Simulated scan of single mutants.
Amino acid sequence: MKGRKEVEGFSPWDLDQLQQCFDTVLAARHLAKGSEEAENIASALIIAYQQGVRDRDELVRLAVSAVEK
């Protein structure tokens, strides 16, 4: 994009990994995809991934801890 420093997107592989983590957390906590908690989980996953976390167990742990606060 013109005028923006750097815009980095997710590859299909990245999105698949994030989706798997998201689905894992929602299933474990019996949450609906459209719930506020689900949105918080998705945000936590994206932030952690952007910060370089790639381990699925760690991503799930961070997402769970984000909604437990």
Rank of each mutant, 00 (worst) to 15 (best):
M1K: 08
M1F: 08
M1A: 10
M1V: 10
K2T: 13
K2D: 14
K2P: 09
G3L: 10
G3C: 00
G3Q: 04
R4Y: 12
K5F: 11
K5I: 14
E6V: 09
E6F: 05
V7R: 15
V7N: 08
V7D: 08
V7H: 13
E8N: 13
E8W: 10
F10T: 00
F10Y: 07
F10E: 04
S11H: 08
S11T: 15
S11R: 07
S11G: 05
P12F: 01
P12R: 01
W13Y: 14
D14C: 00
D16C: 03
D16P: 00
D16Y: 04
Q17M: 13
L18K: 08
L18N: 01
Q19Y: 12
Q19M: 11
Q20G: 15
Q20A: 15
C21H: 05
C21Q: 05
F22Q: 03
T24G: 09
V25L: 06
V25P: 00
L26M: 01
L26V: 01
L26D: 01
A27E: 03
A27N: 01
A27D: 10
A28W: 04
H30N: 12
H30R: 14
H30V: 08
L31F: 02
L31E: 00
L31H: 00
L31A: 03
A32L: 09
K33T: 12
G34S: 12
G34A: 12
S35P: 00
E37P: 05
A38Y: 13
E39G: 14
E39S: 12
E39N: 12
E39M: 10
N40Q: 15
I41R: 02
A42P: 03
A42M: 03
A44V: 00
A44S: 00
A44K: 01
L45K: 03
I46H: 04
I47A: 11
I47D: 08
I47E: 11
A48E: 05
A48S: 05
Y49H: 06
Y49P: 05
Q50Y: 08
Q50G: 09
Q51V: 05
Q51A: 07
G52A: 00
G52R: 07
V53N: 00
V53R: 03
R54Q: 05
R54W: 05
D55K: 05
D55I: 02
R56E: 13
D57Q: 13
D57A: 10
D57L: 09
D57V: 02
E58H: 11
L59I: 08
V60L: 04
R61C: 08
R61V: 03
L62T: 03
L62H: 05
L62Y: 01
A63H: 07
V64K: 15
V64F: 12
S65G: 00
S65E: 15
A66W: 06
V67D: 13
E68Y: 09
E68A: 14
